[in-house]
Design a protein around this nucleic acid. Structure first.
Lengths: 194, 194
DNA sequence: TAAAAGATACCGACTGGTCGGTATCTTTTA
DNA sequence: TAAAAGATACCGACCAGTCGGTATCTTTTA
């Protein structure tokens, strides 16, 4: 019995991500999503309480895969791990192209609702902390100089985010994932103990 | 004669920036802006052809002041100039807090219209180019190592943008303008010829 | 120089359309 | 046959932009 139900739900989710990434969160209407999913509005609201709920489901799915991906990257030393993560950026860039604009848009308007804001800020903080502790580990294991861990972690994060955004803004200006990699390497060059 | 007209226009602009920064571009209705400006809808559309036109006027004003500010900063050597710009970040951070979200939101939805997209991408490119040439000058004058100018310029820009965005996302996490300054200094440390 | 003519600024009711969500009815499933 | 799933018509709120008309200036004219 859940067979059909699950399929419908999956179709709605797939249609939603397609419409959202094309037209944005506000730009994609529920009717549009239903049409693309080949599903009635009644079915839509049978499976999801609001448009926002569909979006949040999509967001959590994406965060989950990123988290899994990051935890999978663990090399012997911290610099090696960071380099590995840097080269992961190319993949992240590719998937961000579709998703990032809609998440950004949603965040910009949802940040005024406290509940949604908390749901979005938690994973960010989790990741930023994880990154800082990675730098600390590097200092402890002696592979990194005695820098301020928070500053360096933030610098790397900022480069990643800043490059991501510029890549969105002006995709054809340059090879953005290469710029991101080399920028981080330029920063790391002054931090790695050799 | 234009006296009254200019005052009305100014009032609309002021009200618009207030409403836009509180409710966002889509969230702020023209009626709302008119109410706050103490002006009728007719007056609004007498002075501006569309809601978008008001917004663009606001954007250009902001870009103008930033441009003026940047050109005013010119020290003897490029590293000194960069340091000076870095300390300007605190001021930019303050003014961005209000404006950046609405500009981001607008850009996200306007980037689908080619005309508006061009209007927004031009100043960005102009600034990015200006920055790259600044690094080139530094190399030419011998104050910077022989690095890839584009990469370093992008890295600095990315740090600025990335920090700005994180400051928006999680304002209370840390002192963001300090993080930005120190991140850029960490990067420059490896690039300055001493 | 004052009245007429014209231009500019402004007013606010109204329109056409959109969209998220609901109510109600029908079909499928177990 | 009852409950889950799905279809369809509809509601109410919102909103950008229009339009016919009025008020307030500026310029021309006699």
């Amino acid at each position: 019995m859940q067979q059909r139900s699950e399929e419908t739900q999956a179709r709605i989710l797939e249609a939603a991500i397609r419409r959202f990434s094309i037209s944005g969160y506000n730009g994609a209407s529920v009717d549009e999503i239903c049409a693309e999913a080949g599903v009635s509005k009644g079915a839509f609201y049978h499976h999801f309480s609001t448009k926002q709920a569909v979006f949040l489901a999509l967001l959590n799915g994406w965060l989950g895969t990123i988290d899994t991906g990051l935890k999978a990257v663990r090399q012997e030393t911290v610099p090696q791990t960071l380099m590995q993560m840097t080269s992961m950026l190319t993949v992240i860039f590719a998937s961000a192209d579709d998703r990032l604009p809609m998440f950004l848009e949603f965040w910009l308007q949802a940040s005024r609702e406290d509940a949604v804001y908390q749901a979005m800020i938690a994973p960010y903080r989790y990741f930023a902390d994880y990154f800082t502790s990675l730098i600390k580990t590097g200092i402890a294991e002696g592979s990194l100089k005695e820098v301020d861990p928070e500053i360096i972690a933030q610098a790397i994060l900022s480069i990643a985010i800043g490059t991501l955004l510029q890549g969105l803004l002006d995709p054809d200006r340059t090879n953005w994932s290469r710029v991101a990699e080399q920028s981080i390497q330029a920063l790391l060059a002054g931090v790695i103990k050799s």
